[in-house]
C-alpha cells in the first residue's frame, strides 16, 4: 500500500527544472528544432484544427444576414447587429439563469462529491467497493427515458413541494446534483488517496474531529481537484439543455443553452446570426474560468490516483 510522504508535486514541479539544464543549446539550432521547435509546429497545427470550425460560428455571428454553413466565404460581411440584437432579446436573462444554475450545481457537486470521496478514501466499511463500482456503473445507464422519468418525478414532487416541481430552477439544480456522484467521485477519490493519512492521524491526535479534518485540512489540501471538478461540472451544466428544456418552461426561467437551442430549432428560418453571437458569448465564461483555473488543472486532474 502506498504511504506517500508528500503529495504529488503540482506546481513548480522539480522535474521541469532538470530540463532547464540543457536549455543552453543555442536558440534556433538543429537541436532546438529536435527538442523544442517541433513542439511549436505541433501546437500551431493543432490550434488551427481547433479553431477553424469555430471560425464558422464567429463569422456567422458577425454576418448580419448570412447563413450558418451555407457559405465558405468567412467574414464576407462584418457587423455587430447580431450582438446588438442580443440585448433586445431575453439573452442576458438566460445568461444570468445559466450562471446561477451552473455555479450552484458546480459548488454542490464539489461539496457532495468531495464528501463522498472522503468517505471512500478514509473509511473502511462493508460494501465500499461495491458502492464505488455501482456509482460508476449507474452513470452508464442509457439515458433514453431519463427525461421522461425525471419529469414524472418532478410532477409528483411538485404536487407536494411546488418549488421543487417543474418549471423551477431549484428543481433543475437538484436534478443536476443527482448526478454529482459518479465519475467526479472517482476523480476526487484518486486524489484524496494521495493526501497522506499521517496528516489525518496527526490532526486526530491533536483532538480534531473527522468533520474538522475534512473541512479544514483535507479540503484545503485537495483544492486543485476541487477546482477541476468544479470546472467540469460548470461546463457540463452550462451547456446542458436536454433536461433543462423539459424542467423549465417559462421563457424567463430558461437557461442559456435551452434558449439557444430553441433559436436553432427553427427548421427553416433559424436566426443563425443571433444564435452564433449567443454561442460565442456563452463560450466566454467557460474559457475565462479555464484560464483562471488552469494552474490547478495542470496540477490537479487525476494526479491523485497515481501511487508512486
Amino acid at each position: 500500500m502506498s504511504v506517500l510522504t508528500k503529495a504529488a508535486p503540482r506546481e513548480s514541479a522539480p522535474r521541469e527544472d532538470r530540463y532547464t539544464i540543457r536549455h543552453d543549446a543555442g536558440p534556433r539550432g538543429v537541436r532546438w528544432w529536435a527538442e523544442v521547435g517541433w513542439r511549436h509546429v505541433v501546437g500551431i497545427v493543432m490550434v488551427v484544427i481547433c479553431v477553424v470550425p469555430l471560425l464558422y460560428v464567429i463569422s456567422a455571428s458577425l454576418n448580419p444576414s448570412g447563413t450558418f454553413t451555407g457559405s465558405n466565404r468567412l467574414f464576407g460581411e462584418v457587423g455587430w447587429n447580431n450582438y446588438a440584437e442580443l440585448f433586445e432579446s431575453r439573452y442576458w436573462r438566460w445568461f444570468l439563469n445559466s450562471f446561477v444554475v451552473a455555479v450552484t450545481s458546480a459548488a454542490g457537486t464539489v461539496l457532495m462529491g468531495g464528501a463522498a470521496a472522503y468517505a471512500f478514501s478514509r473509511f473502511r466499511f462493508s460494501g465500499r467497493r461495491g458502492a464505488l463500482t455501482t456509482l460508476l456503473l449507474v452513470q452508464m445507464f442509457p439515458q433514453m427515458l431519463a427525461v421522461v422519468a425525471i419529469f414524472l418525478v418532478l410532477l409528483t414532487i411538485g404536487d407536494v413541494i411546488p418549488i421543487l416541481g417543474t418549471n423551477s430552477t431549484l428543481a433543475l439544480i437538484a436534478v443536476y446534483l443527482g448526478g454529482a456522484l459518479g465519475v467526479n467521485t472517482f476523480l476526487m477519490y484518486g486524489f484524496f488517496n494521495t493526501v497522506p493519512r499521517e496528516i489525518d492521524e496527526a490532526a486526530k491526535i491533536d483532538g480534531a474531529s473527522h468533520a474538522q479534518i475534512f473541512w479544514t485540512i483535507i479540503l484545503r489540501l485537495v483544492s486543485p481537484i476541487l477546482a477541476v471538478v468544479g470546472l467540469l461540472s460548470f461546463i457540463a451544466t452550462f451547456g446542458e439543455f436536454i433536461i433543462a428544456k423539459t424542467v423549465l418552461q417559462s421563457p424567463d426561467r430558461l437557461t442559456l443553452a435551452v434558449g439557444l437551442y430553441q433559436w436553432a430549432s427553427d427548421e427553416r428560418n433559424a436566426p443563425w446570426g443571433l444564435f452564433s453571437a449567443g454561442a460565442v458569448l456563452a463560450a466566454i465564461p467557460v474559457v475565462v474560468l479555464f484560464l483562471l483555473l488552469q494552474k490547478y488543472i495542470v496540477g490537479g486532474l487525476t494526479a491523485g490516483s497515481v501511487k508512486g
Partner: peptide, 18 residues
Amino acid sequence: SILTAATAVTATLALAAC
C-alpha cells in the same frame, strides 16, 4: 431536420404518462 437531432434520444422521448 438537423436540429431535431439535437434533441437526442432523451429529448425526443420527452415525457410520459403517469
